[in-house]
Design a binder for these strands. Structure first.
Length: 161
DNA sequence: GCCAACGTTGGC
DNA sequence: GCCAACGTTGGC
């Protein structure tokens, strides 16, 4: 089982939206490193959903990968903001995964709070200038994030069926 | 293959 | 709204 952090802008699509829809294709990732991480995901991986460009920024909840990487068709749609003229149907350039909500954090785990956790000191999230939108998370980082809002791993398995 | 210019991200 | 940092593009 691997852990990840996915950024979203709550004004566009935040954790409450994920809860509302129940399942969401995580499309629109147009960065090669982020895409490569998406392609490493397998169903069952857990993701921290992070709100950026928010007040305040932070992790709002946990989601689960419910479908491994497949073609992000927005790359073929000229009407889409995510259209990529170089994304050829027989050799797609961009991928997405499906995620579903698992558990909302009882309180937002703010960026400031994350910076206060030793485990997160070397994460791209807390380093200046990093704009990666899909970030690998270690088991230690994941556990520390849960603990910081008073949750335990076992509660995730209880919440997920 | 280099690198300047540009567009975007994202914290503040 | 500002701006630093970064990735991408395109001219050469």
């Amino acid at each position: 089982m691997l852990y990840w952090l996915l950024k979203s802008e709550p004004d566009v699509f935040g954790y409450p939206d994920l809860v509302r829809v129940g399942k969401e294709p995580w499309n629109g990732v147009r960065n090669y490193l982020a895409r490569n991480y998406l392609r490493q995901m397998v169903a069952g991986d857990l993701c921290l959903i992070y709100h950026s460009n928010a007040k305040p920024n932070g992790v709002a909840g946990v989601a689960r990968v419910v479908r491994a990487a497949y073609t992000d068709n927005l790359q073929f749609d000229p009407e889409s903001a995510y259209f990529d003229p170089k994304g050829l149907p027989d050799n797609p350039r961009w991928s997405m995964v499906d995620v579903s909500p698992v558990l909302a954090f009882p309180t937002l785990l703010t960026l400031d709070a994350l910076r206060g956790l030793l485990e997160w000191a070397d994460s791209p999230l807390t380093q200046k200038g990093t704009r990666l939108s899909v970030i690998p998370v270690t088991a230690e980082q994941f556990r520390a994030a849960l603990e910081a809002v008073g949750l335990e791993l076992e509660q995730l398995s209880a919440a997920s069926t």
